[in-house]
């Protein structure tokens, strides 16, 4: 083996990394660049693009042409984008409220039992998201698991109409990404030195203050990581808005898919994807900055 391998350490390194660079570079990085380029071209009504430069895709985000071919402000797409952020933030918050106590509860368990709880948290995550979201239709839908007994008992008289609402989407998103909130919070809580909690309570901190002054500040990296891991996929979610929002309550993800599947406006779809991508990049930059600042503050040398 050593005969044909490059002799130098650097040579071997790059040889080992070459396949990763090749695959992810060619099939992920280059496509994203092409996607960027496409967003500045004109759409071909039969799918694809015409090689003519145009800013139309980005203009379309804010304006539309009226009957006399004048640009007028169109809040439609902005609203969808705004709703996407709103729903994603809401779902992230729900995940945090729901997930944090559970992550904390798991850390309090004896070491051998903790692993099993984590296993239980991860199992749904590895099963098909489409299937799990579909199950919510059966639960929330007309004549579903929630409504039927309520109707039978006469507590409600008509369908609750829970499906195809923002609430349904928020539940679906929360449900989809809940494990991604619990896991990083658990990871940082697990490293928490419980003697610090005793020290705080010894120094007159009540239970609430122990939580807010010691536990939460110390597992902030886990909380932030969890929020990012939930927020980012929520923003681009397709399944939950599509199945539970019924395709009428659009979010960014489903709007993008729509451009390629039905509307055949590739440049606009590419532009929306670029927008989504930049939102992610900005979020990650903020995260990296915060992490760096934190490292400096705590003087971890």
């Amino acid at each position: 083996m050593s005969n044909w391998l490059p002799r130098s350490a650097a040579g071997r390194r790059w040889l080992g990394l070459a396949p990763s660079y090749f695959v992810i570079g060619i099939f992920m990085l280059v496509p994203m660049v092409i996607m960027g380029v496409f967003s500045f071209l004109e759409p071909n009504p039969y799918g694809g693009v015409k090689p003519i430069g145009s800013l139309d895709a980005y203009v379309k985000l804010f304006f539309e042409y009226d009957l006399e071919d004048n640009l007028v402000f169109n809040p439609g797409y902005i609203n969808i984008i705004f709703r996407s952020f709103q729903l994603s933030l809401g779902a992230t918050l729900l995940c945090l409220i729901f997930g944090f106590p559970v992550a904390y509860f798991i850390t309090l368990q004896p070491a051998n039992r903790r692993n099993f709880y984590i296993y239980l948290v991860t199992i749904p995550f590895w099963t098909n998201l489409l299937i799990r979201t579909f199950a919510w239709i059966i639960i929330l839908g007309r004549g579903g698991v929630i409504e039927t007994p309520l109707l039978a008992m006469g507590i409600i008289e008509d369908s609750l109409r829970m499906m195809y609402t923002d609430g349904a989407i928020a539940i679906g998103l929360t449900y989809s990404y809940l494990p991604l909130m619990v896991l990083p919070i658990y990871a940082s809580l697990e490293k928490l030195d419980f003697r610090l909690l005793e020290a705080a309570s010894d120094l007159y901190a009540n239970r609430f203050e122990v939580m807010t002054k010691v536990v939460i500040p110390l597992c902030k990296p886990g909380i932030i990581a969890g929020c990012l891991l939930v927020f980012i996929p929520c923003l681009g979610a397709f399944i939950a808005p599509n199945l539970l929002g019924g395709g009428k309550k659009l979010m960014l993800g489903s709007l993008v898919q729509f451009q390629f599947a039905s509307a055949r406006n590739w440049p606009f779809g590419a532009a929306l994807s670029m927008l989504l991508l930049s939102a992610v990049v900005i979020t990650l930059i903020f995260y990296a900055r915060a992490a760096k600042k934190r490292a400096v503050l705590e003087g971890s040398a």
Binding site: A199, S201, D202, L203
Partner: peptide, 15 residues
């Protein structure tokens, strides 16, 4: 509760 006792502790590993 520990927080209600006028007693303070120096911990073994300082905490």
């Amino acid at each position: 509760e520990p927080s209600q006792r006028p007693v303070n502790t120096v911990f073994q590993h300082y905490a």
